[in-house]
């Protein structure tokens, strides 16, 4: 990746000795990044199959909805941030065509490697770049991308406000951010069923399929610690995004937030 001349990066606002959450556990701020990295190193190989099993395939519909809301077109520059195994990148790559470009970025080299292998197996090589990058300090120039997407990645970022500021910086004026993330169910009945599923069934499924109960317990805990729909929208506005809105999907289990840079 040649575009690494970031010019006005917001530095992470970590303070030595400060605490943050890692699931329900309080950890040192500096420690969270490596703990999250360990989780994704551990699940990378079975990530796709676990996504299908855990969501009963619905994650594909959520991601499709995100793409349909992106307004992507031929020749555009798209950043798929925390793109993991490249589900969104594959689709975007075919939409933007040879004159456009999609950058698949993830902080975790294991996830990026799985994504790279998968996309190459699909024959997608010409217009995809792979960049290992921290969302809080993106190594891209200002005003570079037409669209930035972040699917199921923001909740793992230690300083979300820094990540949003960094995304805002790399977006072109007129560009849009789409954040697909777990959120708060809108119905209390659904919330109870969802809690039972995620705290009791999910770790056991992780144990059975990926032989990794702890990572999937972290997944459930991290979802509960993530800001709800309105809070995240407010955070986006604070970062400078305008025309923000969100759409609840599957009763608010997941929400798609949108914001524009004008």
């Amino acid at each position: 990746m040649s575009d690494n001349n970031a010019t006005s990066e917001t530095q992470p606002a970590s303070v030595a000795g400060s605490k943050t959450h890692f699931g329900f556990t309080q950890v040192d701020t500096e420690q969270k990044e490596s703990l999250v990295a360990d989780v994704f190193h551990s699940v990378a190989a079975k990530y796709d199959i676990m996504n299908d099993v855990m969501s009963m395939g619905i994650h594909r519909i959520w991601k499709r909805y995100t793409i349909d809301c992106s307004g992507a077109r031929k020749g555009q520059q798209i950043l798929d941030l925390a793109g993991g195994t490249g589900d969104l990148t594959a689709k975007f790559s075919r939409i933007v065509g040879p004159t456009g470009s999609v950058t698949l970025s993830d902080i975790n080299p294991s996830m990026l490697e799985v994504g790279k292998d998968k996309l190459r197996d699909m024959g997608l090589v010409d217009n995809i770049k792979y960049v290992e990058a921290n969302a809080e300090a993106l190594p891209f120039p200002d005003n570079h991308f037409d669209i930035v997407t972040m699917a199921f990645g923001l909740r793992n970022v230690t300083h979300k406000e820094n990540a949003l500021a960094s995304i805002y910086r790399v977006l072109k004026p007129g560009g849009r951010l789409l954040v697909l993330e777990f959120s708060k169910p809108t119905s209390s009945a659904l919330e109870k069923i969802y809690d039972t599923y995620s705290f009791h069934l999910l770790p056991k499924m992780g144990k059975l399929i990926a032989d990794d109960e702890d990572s999937y317990r972290y997944l459930a805990e991290s979802i509960r610690m993530h800001p709800d729909q309105d809070t995240l929208e407010q955070m986006m506005q604070t970062a400078g995004f305008e025309g923000t809105s969100y759409t609840n999907l599957t009763g608010g289990i997941v929400a798609l937030h949108r914001g524009f840079k004008y």
């Binding site: 619905i58 594909r60 519909i61 499709r64 909805y65 349909d68 999907l249 599957t250």
Partner: peptide, 9 residues
């Protein structure tokens, strides 16, 4: 669940 995306899928 967005039904349109289910159908297009």
């Amino acid at each position: 669940m967005p039904i349109t995306q289910l159908l297009s899928g």
